[in-house]
Amino acid sequence: MATEITLEVARYRPGVDSEPVMQSYQVPLREHWAILDGLTYVKDHLDGTLSFRWSCRMGICGSCGMTVNGEPQLSCATFLTDYAPGPIRVEPLHNFPVVRDLVVDIDDFMTKLPKVKPWVVREVQSPVEEGEYLQTPEELDEYQQFSMCINCMLCYSACPVYSLEPDFLGPAAIALAQRYNLDSRDEGADERRDVLSSPEGVWACTFVGECSAVCPKGVDPAGAIQRYKLTAATQSIKELLMPRISRRLNSRSQG
């Protein structure tokens, strides 16, 4: 096995470069080394000016999403040896504005996330003194996989709809909304419906399915979206067919 591998890293210096330029670095090719280890090697020994985000290096904090050979990946969970003999092309996540080198701006997601109310909504909050809200393992299982989202943004990077339609809420935000909709303790589905069942919500999704394919945590945002479409469409048609009943329901939930 070769002892080194080439990383071709996208560099972008705002105000200096008009678009990213690729720069090559030779890094040691070692077993167990993730792409991230290669990048920190560059930062520590070759070029201190390279900027990228990272923290937990165990695939749970969601900081280090990058485009590796064209695919969105967590750079801490993608290994150099899998790409030998290289070169490995490392670029920032697609579909986001690039702030610097491999760092992208995710403010858009951070602004959209609160809009889907990703928290428990209840008409009456019981005092904690009364103990826990009961939830069976089966009820937990209903939403558990959607609670696994680490907000790493790989799904947004893989979503062509998001690249074309910047107003689209996007896979992770909708999956997190469904995480609460499907939680037996939550009563907020109706409050979330306005945002979810809007043209920028689930209806913009064409089920490309790449969000789920690239998710490092096995969340299925595409599935969450399709399930929500079915729920929302059924509800809408019920309201269309039985306007009086649904109006009464609506006025109650709004009141």
């Binding site: 069942s197 809007s198 209806w203 479409k229 469409a233 059924t234 509800q235 809408s236 048609i237």
Partner: peptide
């Protein structure tokens, strides 16, 4: 929300 045709079209 109520006037949006998307749910019907999707169905």
């Amino acid at each position: 929300r109520r006037s949006s045709p998307e749910p019907l079209l999707w169905m």
